[in-house]
Amino acid sequence: MQQTVIEGIDGVADDVVALTLRATGGELAPWAPGAHVDLALPNWLTRQYSLCGDPADRDAYRVAVRYDPLSRGGSEYVHRFLRRGRTLDVSLPRNHFPLADAPHYLFLAGGIGITPLLPMLRAATAAGRPATLLYVGPSLDSMPFVDELRRSCGERVRIVETRRQGRPDLDALAATLDDDTLVYCCGPAAMLEAAAVAFPAERLHAERFQPTERSFGPAAPFEAVCAGSGDTVAVPADESLLDALAHAGHPLPSGCREGVCGSCEVAVLDGDPEHRDDIGAPDGRMYACVSRARSARLVLDL
Rank of each mutant, 00 (worst) to 15 (best):
G217E: 12
C261Y: 08
E265I: 04
A126F: 00
R163W: 07
A227C: 03
T176M: 01
A288E: 02
S50D: 06
L302A: 11
H275P: 07
I114K: 08
G262I: 00
L82V: 04
P221M: 06
A109M: 04
V290G: 14
R22P: 04
V266M: 09
A296E: 14
R208F: 09
E223T: 14
R94W: 06
W31I: 05
R214G: 04
A244G: 14
G166V: 01
V157Y: 08
R156C: 10
Q2A: 11
A109T: 09
E193K: 07
L269T: 10
A60I: 00
V268D: 12
W31T: 07
L133R: 08
R208V: 06
Y287I: 03
G271Q: 02
C289L: 02
V12T: 12
L133F: 10
D15Q: 13
G217Y: 01
R72D: 05
G74S: 08
R84E: 15
A18K: 03
Y49L: 05
E223R: 14
S240T: 15
F199M: 03
H96E: 11
M120P: 12
L106A: 12
A296K: 05
R158E: 15
P116T: 09
G34T: 02
F97R: 10
A281N: 05
F216T: 01
P273G: 10
V65R: 04
I112P: 12
L19T: 09
L269D: 12
A248W: 06
E161L: 01
A131W: 05
A296G: 13
G249S: 11
T24G: 14
G228M: 00
P282H: 08
E223F: 04
G166Y: 03
A244Y: 03
Y61T: 09
V260N: 10
E213N: 04
H79Y: 09
H96L: 07
E148N: 03
L70M: 09
R156E: 12
S139Y: 02
A194G: 02
L99C: 11
L92W: 09
R86N: 14
T20D: 06
G230E: 01
Q2S: 12
P211F: 03
E207G: 11
V12Q: 11
I279M: 07
Y135W: 06
T181F: 05
G53T: 04
E265M: 13
R285V: 05
